[in-house]
Amino acid sequence: CHSECLGNCSQPDDPTKCVACRNFYLDGRCVETCPPPYYHFQDWRCVNFSFCQDLHHKCKNSRRQGCHQYVIHNNKCIPECPSGYTMNSSNLLCTPCLGPCPKVCHLLEGEKTIDSVTSAQELRGCTVINGSLIINIRGGNNLAAELEANLGLIEEISGYLKIRRSYALVSLSFFRKLRLIRGETLEIGNYSFYALDNQNLRQLWDWSKHNLTITQGKLFFHYNPKLCLSEIHKMEEVSGTKGRQERNDIALKTNGDQASCENELLKFSYIRTSFDKILLRWEPYWPPDFRDLLGFMLFYKEAPYQNVTEFDGQDACGSNSWTVVDIDPPLRSNDPKSQNHPGWLMRGLKPWTQYAIFVKTLVTFSDERRTYGAKSDIIYVQTDATNPSVPLDPISVSNSSSQIILKWKPPSDPNGNITHYLVFWERQAEDSELFELDYCLKGLKLPSRTWSPPFESEDSQKHNQSEYEDSAGECCSCPKTDSQILKELEESSFRKTFEDYLHNVVFVPRKT
């Protein structure tokens, strides 16, 4: 048989008469490798580009789960590009990614509803959504962080984005990388972005840091009482949809009607710091009717980097990364020049730590249904340095008659930039024990000054392991946590139920 035959053949030295091919099969003959313009397919066939392209389009058009959109890589027609490569849609070739590779997620039936953290986790790592997304989240724990972890990498949506009755959302900033909504599939009414009845939605994105392009379709905003109209108009300008909307697409009466839409800028007039305090004062603000001013709200939190936005980490279910302080308005003076500047002394802060701070007014709604208010920009203030805590785990070892090696770990709280350490030492008198000992005694162990690591005695271990207080009263049991108490109650309830079950099964009433 021919060298490319495997198993047997019907005619000697003829690659077209093989029972099976050793390498690849091409047009009725066995070959060692697939010549151009053919590609290896499933490690035994040679196919042309049209064959591989037909497989790709067949799966793409069917949208069946589990099928493969075949691509070409290293002269092979394979189910998908290997790690580190992405497909070129024009020629199906796998090309190296520039940075992290995109991950295209194809949605069944063309859309997916995100109504819980669990459903959001199914899209973790996706960068391109081939379909439409509907966000409908009523509640949950730590929602802002969970949504950002699972949806934060999405850069492109081919269909539309719909935010509907998501009472738990305060902001859409968890879509931190969303840059493009194509609108290839539109919501009824030709809408590519749809926001309806979101009672706590206050911000779409921080438009000073976020760009969003909507290729096709219109915007729809109705019944978002805490979303200011200025935020919607800003989205029109940034996304390129200005002029597409009709009169009733953006409701003037049901958007922002319960919001404090600040239209003035508060400026800080005085800032002073110490290692654990920050004193702030800002310019006074009074609405047209000074009785509408209820006070100020001061927001602050630790910020290692200057990239904080107002609604980071917030949701309507209680999660809030900001510390909020309510401040009463100052006494009002008739003389504008003698107006008191409101302020606040922030206490209990960490030394040498940068804080993000902003302040906003708290006002009631005027009778004319106009909203007044003022808010400052987010500023960054760093507390002063102070003395560091003591170095940890000092170790001293003498390696000769004239040297001592000293080692330690950095302090747990540096409280500033540590530039150097101060080492103090003092000579001590020799131990009298060394002169009084009889060095001729056998088995004498000389006193040693070398360091030995501390260890816990058996008594201390027994005390720590004991669940009861000892007789001397030195140790006591740790208080039980809520989960331990709940577990004990469940076990007790189970024992009672099981005992009742045994009584009912074992003891049967005697027939009379």
Rank of each mutant, 00 (worst) to 15 (best):
L107M: 03
L108M: 11
G110C: 04
K112A: 08
T113D: 15
I114H: 00
I114D: 00
I114K: 01
D115N: 05
S116I: 04
S119G: 02
T127E: 01
T127A: 08
V128R: 11
G131L: 00
L133H: 00
L133K: 00
I134A: 06
I134S: 12
I135P: 00
I135S: 00
N136R: 10
N141M: 10
A144Q: 14
A145S: 07
L147M: 14
L147W: 03
A149N: 13
L151H: 01
L151S: 01
L153Y: 08
L153F: 07
L153D: 09
E155I: 07
E155N: 10
E156M: 13
I157E: 00
I157L: 05
S158G: 05
S158P: 00
Y160L: 09
Y160A: 03
L161M: 08
K162Q: 14
I163H: 00
R165T: 12
S166E: 01
Y167P: 08
A168R: 15
L169V: 13
V170C: 06
V170A: 06
S173L: 11
F174S: 12
R179T: 12
I181N: 00
R182Q: 07
G183H: 02
E187T: 05
E187M: 07
I188N: 02
I188D: 15
G189V: 05
F193H: 00
Y194G: 12
Y194W: 05
Y194E: 12
Y194V: 14
Q199D: 15
Q199Y: 10
N200D: 06
R202L: 12
R202Q: 02
Q203F: 02
W205S: 01
W205R: 01
D206A: 14
K209A: 10
K209C: 14
N211R: 12
L212H: 02
T213R: 12
T215E: 11
Q216L: 11
K218C: 04
L219Q: 02
L219A: 05
L219H: 08
L219N: 09
F220D: 05
F220Q: 14
H222T: 01
H222Q: 09
Y223T: 04
N224H: 10
L227E: 00
L227D: 00
L229T: 05
H233C: 10
K234Q: 13
E237D: 14
E237I: 13
E237L: 08
T241E: 11
K242M: 14
R244G: 14
Q245T: 11
E246H: 15
E246L: 04
D249I: 00
K253F: 07
T254L: 13
N255T: 04
Q258D: 14
A259S: 10
A259E: 04
A259M: 09
S260D: 05
C261F: 01
E262S: 05
N263A: 03
N263H: 03
N263Q: 06
N263C: 11
L265C: 11
L265P: 03
L266R: 00
K267L: 08
Y270V: 08
T273C: 14
F275L: 04
F275N: 10
K277N: 04
I278N: 00
W282G: 00
W282C: 15
P284L: 13
Y285W: 06
P287Q: 05
P287D: 02
P288E: 09
R291K: 08
R291Q: 08
D292R: 08
D292L: 07
D292I: 10
D292S: 06
L293R: 06
L293I: 09
L293M: 07
L293K: 04
L294S: 11
L294W: 15
L294G: 12
F296R: 00
M297C: 12
F299S: 01
Y300D: 00
Y300C: 14
K301H: 06
K301I: 14
A303D: 03
P304M: 10
P304D: 05
P304T: 13
Y305P: 04
G313C: 03
G313V: 11
Q314A: 10
D315Y: 13
A316E: 15
N320K: 11
N320L: 13
W322R: 01
W322F: 09
T323P: 02
V325L: 14
D326L: 01
I327A: 11
I327G: 02
D328R: 08
L331I: 06
L331T: 12
L331G: 15
S333I: 12
D335W: 09
D335V: 13
P336I: 08
S338T: 14
Q339E: 07
N340Q: 12
N340K: 14
P342S: 07
W344I: 01
L345G: 12
L345F: 13
P351V: 12
W352G: 01
A356N: 01
I357M: 02
F358Q: 10
F358T: 07
F358P: 00
K360Q: 12
K360T: 03
V363P: 08
E368M: 07
T371L: 11
G373E: 02
G373D: 11
A374R: 05
Y380V: 12
Y380T: 07
Y380E: 01
V381Y: 03
D384S: 04
A385S: 11
T386Q: 03
P388E: 01
D393N: 05
D393L: 15
P394W: 15
I395Q: 10
I395G: 11
V397T: 07
S398K: 01
S398Q: 13
N399K: 12
N399P: 10
S400M: 05
S402M: 03
S402P: 03
Q403V: 05
I404V: 08
I405G: 08
K407L: 12
P410H: 14
P411S: 15
